[in-house]
Write a protein that binds this DNA or RNA. Structure first.
Lengths: 367, 367
DNA sequence: TTGTACGCGTTATCAC
DNA sequence: GTGATAACGCGTACAA
């Protein structure tokens, strides 16, 4: 089935180069644009123009069809790498996430791929696994690949050294013509889809206060995690403005994950036994904590109410339904794409505001 | 801050080519390998060898360091596209999924990125959104990019035309030196991580039968969806072997999604009011159906028990905990990567068997 | 409208 | 061990 096409190549300068691919037996020589041109009986330039409108204007209808036919016949597939070299730019954008398995990021990725696809871009996915070094490394790799733009998704850490390093890497990338956008905090000096974590958690706090809750506990996530921190302070400060105090003892730190919420609940209950409602800075923590509460024999939401943040779609069917702050994750990815592609000198900022979704996990406490 | 480096380039053939990037103001000329070579006072060849061991043997220690220093000084970033051209191969693998926002695929993606990263490969993500045409298009795009390998994740459809087209596209890709692996069914003639859906659902059926259940309903997913079909028949056939009949009326078809499970429950209960347990062919459908049951005033699992398939991590905290068949999704992605990279002539097959996880949604019915 | 010829940045082959 | 130099496949001024 596999045929070894044996044919001369190009206009020939002299040495009949045996292709290096001759080592493997399964590979048939790729048809190049020169092959197509020769097959169609036109020049290389004409073939190029016929297959992608650009350059010196249009091509005669007859020729265009001949070239197209030849290309089809030879199963011609343009070499994107060669095109990238010749054009000086690629059609791919890099997406850097902390953990693609996390529904937060996979939703964003869905938005990015949709927008990229619509714009004719390919997406290179980089999964840092929460590792700063790896993140830096990916930026360099994407720069090597001459990715046209990079989208950095996910909140930043309070880590000056890491941030500085990243800023430097991004500066290098941008100086070489790349453009960048971040989803999270606007602290990198580039265009940002900023999540209004403070506003969202404040709105949530206010709504819960309106429901009659007064004694709150907070599962605040990692200390240096900016998103976690913003959501915590937004929540606590809003309550303070309402005259409700959240004692430091009722704020416990843990990982940003399901496990973090699950294991930290015990500590919270130990330090603040009288809380009525636990606000976890993201949904998965909230759900993990809810499970821990049940395992401890606590009735949910009767004995203890729970609220989260993000509104992860996969979690819509937990029982009781989780009160949370809805974030348009997929749209955030979609929004970030043109932002990343935009070469504007001044960084732009798009603010995404969450929307409070009151559900069964926080019933009114009017009684 | 941005400096316009004004320097001559290369050994110069004559025309002092003004770089095309001179139009934008923000871009600084990229340092090329020639620049590094000149800066270090060595030849291009030596510079190339110094920076990546290959080609004509080693480089003297002194020179190697000088080149490295020059590269650092100039902020040299190798052009992956140029390397790809010169080497005749890239270091990126394409991952094609139906929906990256689906936890099933995002977990697989996590496994693929981890394995790819370890092997020094970049991952290009393509999201088909369940569109055959788009899937085909992505294979061609990846071929254009000369991706070294392609991983097709996700079950196939019973659609000869679409499958044939895909097979043809893959054949073209492979003839040009690419390698392919599929996660799902082994019907494409390429290496496959095959999910033993039949065995998994059969084991589940047996276990549930052992728990005392006798009247089953099945939310069977889309008619032509092979994964859905395999899980359905595996389940039904195993019960038949145990002497339990699942009447056709108790098998309802719907979408493979949460919504599919949610909306189809009513129909199932209408057609088979006496079922004790509903097996949905994946977890999200099961959870959606569970919600629908609750909304209909049915007690879960007392009034109706539920089981799913996949064991999606994000769903671990639904209440009651969902009985399901555990699939090592991330590992499946990890396994698929070397399989995809392998250029073996004969397609290989790795079988992944699910593991039954009995949980609270299907309590023993010994009474 | 079409063709010629050069350059894109790198690797690899061959002499030295 | 090191240095010329020919590819790699394509886009595009420039000339015709």
């Amino acid at each position: 089935m596999v045929t070894h096409a044996q044919r001369s190549r190009g206009t020939m300068t002299g040495t009949a180069t045996g292709r290096r691919r001759s080592t493997t037996k399964a590979a048939r020589a790729r048809a190049t644009l020169s092959d197509v041109a020769r097959e169609a009986g036109v020049s290389l330039a004409t073939a190029s123009r016929a297959l992608n409108g650009t350059s010196g204007r249009a091509v005669g209808d007859g020729l265009r069809e001949r070239v197209q036919a030849a290309a089809d016949r030879l199963d011609y597939s343009p070499d994107a790498n060669a095109q990238a070299m010749a054009r000086g730019r690629t059609a791919s954008i890099g997406l850097v996430v902390h953990d693609i398995a996390d529904p937060y990021f996979s939703s964003i990725a869905a938005g990015v791929t949709a927008a990229a696809d619509a714009g004719g871009y390919a997406v290179t996915l980089a999964n840092t696994q929460h590792d700063h070094v790896r993140e830096l490394h990916f930026v360099q790799t994407l720069q090597s690949q001459r990715a046209r733009a990079i989208i950095l998704a996910g909140g930043r850490q309070d880590d000056d050294e890491a941030n500085d390093r990243l800023r430097a890497a991004l500066r290098g990338y941008r100086e070489q013509g790349g453009t960048v956008a971040v989803i999270g905090q606007a602290i990198l000096g580039v265009s940002t889809v900023r999540v209004d974590n403070v506003g969202g958690s404040a709105a949530l706090a206010t709504a819960l206060h309106g429901l009659g809750y007064r004694r709150f506990g907070v599962m605040a996530g990692p200390q240096r995690h900016l998103t976690a921190r913003e959501r915590t302070t937004g929540f606590v400060d809003a309550l303070a403005r309402l005259g409700v105090d959240v004692p430091p003892a009722a704020v416990v730190h843990s990982e940003f994950t399901r496990t973090g919420g699950n294991t930290a609940l015990a500590e919270l209950l130990l330090r603040a036994p009288d809380v009525e409602l636990v606000f976890a800075v993201n949904d998965v923590m909230a759900v993990g904590a809810m499970s821990a509460a049940r395992d401890a024999g606590i009735v949910v939401p009767g004995g203890l109410a729970f609220a989260g943040f993000d509104d992860i779609a996969t979690l819509h069917d937990v029982n009781p339904a989780l009160t949370t702050v809805h974030l348009p994750l997929e749209e955030m990815g979609r929004l970030a794409t043109p932002l990343a592609l935009d070469a504007a000198a001044e960084p732009r900022e798009v603010v995404v505001t969450g929307e409070v979704r009151l559900r069964d996990s926080t019933p009114a406490r009017s009684a």
